[in-house]
Design a protein around this nucleic acid. Structure first.
Lengths: 263, 263
DNA sequence: GTGCGTACGG
DNA sequence: CCGTACGCAC
């Protein structure tokens, strides 16, 4: 049994203790972090080292974005794709060794895309769509059991947001983004583990805006995902979202997801 | 018995809980704060109100400087001098009413003066000297029992710094500043209560640089003072500096002083 | 709302 | 080193 977690931590330095608490409590074999918001030289390596997460691939940059994959199983780092070719740190890929030999874990932070869902008016939205197209091109050539996980910044299903009709024109839930995400998924035939294990239309949010935190309206969206190649998906045994982190002090706006695989 | 305290708090909002802890523990009748670093509209009034400090004179500004005098004895606010005439909030004066009728408490935050002790090269140093000259002119006309207290940003005696020879050219301990401070003191005949009660050359520091905090060299300076008119000084019964606040979490770089008067 | 960079003052 | 303000991104 191998368990893999993902969490957009929104600053790994500020929340190093929360990450430690999560790792101690959930004991995943691998944790994929997004928005670490630091260069590797300031990554809190010791916190992970002390908890047995001695294998780490940190792809960081100053202030924004940044991803890291930490593991207590040995792995080999494969690549760091820059699908926008703009130098942003949004991906790191590793291949597990040992017990889970051969499993590839792609950790990605897809661009948020700005506020206006129109590439003429908003270059960031165009970049998000282009990023997804390039990911689709890349996925088409994948030929190994792959888990791609992270913050996709898209809530694809109607039931992935608290109000489908209200959000259909809001970046993260527009038809054009969802179509681009679908092309990417179909390019490899990924299976959406979130909805394999928690079937639609069940509530399954992973993100809540800080701006409406104080309200208790539960205005969530499912922006974080774990997608697996068909053969690997068949080996997934459980999947859960760890919502209690939201109730910790100064929480991230995202919660972690954890999947267990029979391998 | 009336007890008066002074503390450069270095942000009263960030350290409102530390101020509350200090007030609960030491129970001074009056506390003079400097570097509150906030406009009055964001001053944590309720914290003081809840502890019985229902009389407050807050002279704040956005981001920098700012002084406040809080009291559980009634007082009347007298004035807010702007000796630099540059709009900075560096002084507030009050007159105690009731039990301690007639005692005037002048709360002041003298400019730090920049890094270079030369008014040709460093305008801030000139402003500090000018500020002191204007205070001397003002002090010459005082005719009531007055306590002037706060962060004077000058360590006048050789024993008021950890290394007299090393600091003689460092702003806060240069002969020209000390001479200006002496003129101010002599203009009214103030008595330095810190050295009345803790005679030179006894260790008596009130400030340590954040830059050398991690060292434990005790590189302190006596920058905070309580000076009294001769008649009032004769009524002072005890004086102490409350160094334990330095060991609290995220401490101010200054510690509080407390004086008790027999009146 | 909450994070980080930068700039400024100490 | 440690505060605040501001701008930017999400």
């Amino acid at each position: 049994m191998v368990s893999i977690a993902t969490w957009n931590i929104n600053s790994v330095r500020l929340r190093a203790d929360q990450v430690a608490r999560f790792l101690t409590q959930e004991e995943p074999d691998v944790l994929c972090l997004q928005e670490i918001k630091t260069e590797e030289k300031h990554f809190p390596h010791q916190v992970f080292e002390d908890l047995g997460y001695t294998h780490r691939a940190v792809h960081g940059q100053k202030g924004y974005h940044g991803v890291a994959t930490v593991s207590r199983l040995p792995f080999r780092e494969l690549d760091r794709h820059d699908w926008q070719a703009n130098g942003e740190a949004r991906h790191v890929g590793v291949e597990l060794l040992g017990a889970a030999q051969g499993m590839v874990i792609e950790n990605v932070y897809i661009p948020a895309g700005g506020d206006i869902p129109d590439r003429e008016q908003n270059a960031k939205f165009g970049q998000k769509l282009d990023f997804l197209e390039r990911m689709a091109f890349w996925a088409d050539r994948l030929d190994r059991p792959t888990l791609i996980t992270g913050d996709f910044n898209i809530a694809p299903l109607d039931c992935d947001v608290y109000d489908h009709k209200a959000l259909i024109k809001v970046v993260s839930h527009t038809p054009i983004e969802i179509a681009a995400l679908d092309r990417f998924r179909n390019a490899h035939g990924f299976e959406d583990l979130g909805r394999k294990h928690i079937p639609a239309p069940e509530r399954n949010y992973s993100w809540w805006s800080y701006r409406t935190y104080w309200q208790d309206k539960d205005r969530g969206r499912r922006l974080d995902h774990m997608w697996a190649s068909p053969d690997l998906a068949a080996q997934s045994r459980s999947h859960r979202f760890v919502e209690e982190t939201r109730r910790w002090d100064q929480p991230s706006d995202h919660i972690p997801l954890v999947t267990e695989f029979d391998l």
